[in-house]
Simulated scan of single mutants.
Amino acid sequence: MVKQERALRTREALITSAATVFDRDGFSVASLNAISSLAGVSSGALHFHFVNKAALADSVEQAAAERLDRIVTAHEGVAGSSLQLLVDASHDLAHLLTEDVVLRAGFELSREQVRGGNQGLHHQWHEWVGAALKRADGEGLLNEVAPETVAASVVAATTGFEVLGTQDPQWLSHGTITRFWQLLLPRLAAPAVLGDLVPGGSRSK
């Protein structure tokens, strides 16, 4: 049991270190020596857990996908309108992209063309946003707009903020996300519910 726990800690340390180096240097430039050194383990220990750099990157993406899943599932089944839950989730995503290097690196890796990335995290986010908007439509919250069209716009904007945020964290700030929803909600939400929505997130009330 002790050996298993130690091995799990080593694996998690390597994933975090890999995310840090990928985020700092990019996948192509990142070296396994830099990753093992940052994690405080030997190259042999790294290769015991991961056969190569691509396997490490896959594990970073998987860990990021689990973090994204926790963000969106935290807003499933919560009391409140589906539109407000979408607003809140987008704020949580933006905040954690600035705080969590694994989540940030996972998004970067998911669009990394040199690895033939499958856009996994972006697809995962798109699926959840689309489902949230379909629920909002069913609840009568939308202002005669197609959920699919709105989902594409929301995903394009929020993932655009993610990309821009790699160079300037201001793009992922609470103010930026709030202004985005201040612009979009009057077009998106039915007039009867617009006044109940909080562009800054329900926690900002």
Results as ranks from 00 to 15, higher is better:
L83I: 07
A146D: 11
L185I: 06
M1W: 14
Q182M: 01
L141K: 09
A89H: 00
A146H: 11
L172Q: 02
L164S: 12
A105Y: 04
T178I: 10
R9C: 05
L172K: 01
T158Y: 01
G26Y: 14
R6Q: 11
D196H: 05
R6L: 15
V145A: 03
L121M: 00
A63L: 00
W125D: 00
G40D: 03
T166Y: 10
A7G: 10
F50C: 00
V29D: 14
P199L: 08
S90E: 11
E5I: 15
V60L: 00
A39V: 10
T98V: 11
T176V: 11
Q4R: 15
A55E: 14
T159N: 13
S43Y: 11
L188K: 02
A13W: 03
A64H: 03
R187N: 03
T16C: 05
W125E: 04
A89L: 13
G130L: 14
V145N: 11
T20V: 08
L38I: 08
L133A: 08
D137Q: 14
S90V: 13
A13R: 08
E61D: 06
R11Q: 06
Q170Y: 13
F48L: 15
T73E: 11
E112M: 08
F180E: 00
S173N: 00
G44K: 08
L97V: 06
A79K: 13
A7E: 15
L141I: 04
V102I: 10
G130Y: 05
F161Y: 11
E112N: 04
M1N: 15
L97P: 01
M1I: 10
F50L: 06
S204T: 07
T158E: 05
V154K: 03
P147T: 03
L164A: 14
Q119W: 15
V87N: 07
L188V: 09
A30K: 08
A13I: 00
L46K: 08
A64C: 08
A34N: 00
S37H: 04
L68M: 12
V51I: 14
E162M: 14
N143T: 04
I71V: 12
I71M: 02
